[in-house]
Amino acid sequence: MDITGNAVIFGGGGGIGRSTALLFAQSNASAVVVADLNLEAAESAAAEAKRAATNPKFRAEALRVDVTIQESVDSVFDHVTTSIGRMDYCVNCAGFPVKTARQTADADVAEFFRVQDINLRGTFFVVRAACAIMRSQDLLPNLAEFPERGSTRGSIVTLGSVLSLGASPYLMQYTTSKHAVLGLTKTAAIDHAADGIRVNCVCPTWVDTNMTKQVCEDVPGIEETLIPSVPLGRIAKPEEIADAIVFLSSPRASFVTGCPFIIDGGASLSSNR
Rank of each mutant, 00 (worst) to 15 (best):
N142V: 06
H79Y: 15
V157A: 08
S151Y: 02
L120P: 02
V80T: 05
V115W: 07
G154D: 02
R128V: 10
F96A: 03
G85F: 13
V109E: 09
C131R: 03
R102A: 15
V126K: 01
I118D: 01
M134K: 06
I133W: 04
T100N: 15
G122L: 02
A129L: 08
R102K: 14
L139I: 07
L139S: 10
D78N: 13
F96L: 11
G122I: 01
T152F: 11
F124P: 10
T158L: 12
D108S: 03
E145S: 12
A144Q: 15
A110C: 00
M87T: 03
C93N: 09
A107D: 06
T123P: 00
H79D: 13
R153D: 01
S83F: 10
R102L: 09
T158R: 01
F125T: 09
A105I: 11
L120T: 07
V109A: 11
G85A: 10
R153T: 00
L139K: 04
V127Y: 09
G150H: 06
A144I: 09
E145M: 04
I84V: 15
F124V: 12
A110Q: 06
M87H: 04
I133C: 14
Q116F: 03
D108Q: 01
F96T: 02
N119Q: 08
T104H: 11
V91H: 02
H79L: 12
R114E: 08
A130F: 04
D106R: 02
D106M: 01
S83N: 06
C90H: 08
A110V: 03
Q137V: 06
T123F: 03
A132C: 08
S83L: 09
I118V: 14
R102G: 07
E148S: 05
E148W: 08
S151R: 06
E111A: 09
I84M: 15
V127C: 15
P141L: 02
N119F: 14
V157M: 06
V98K: 00
C90K: 00
N142I: 05
C131P: 11
R121W: 07
L139E: 08
E145L: 15
M134A: 11
D106F: 13
R121G: 02
F125C: 04
K99N: 08
D78Y: 14
L139P: 00
V109M: 07
E148F: 06
T158N: 15
F112N: 01
D78E: 13
R135P: 04
A107C: 07
F112V: 02
R86A: 11
L159P: 02
L120H: 00
A101Q: 11
D106V: 00
Q137W: 14
T81N: 09
F112I: 00
S155E: 08
A105M: 04
G95C: 07
A105S: 05
L120C: 02
G122E: 07
F96Q: 11
N119P: 11
Y89Q: 01
R153C: 01
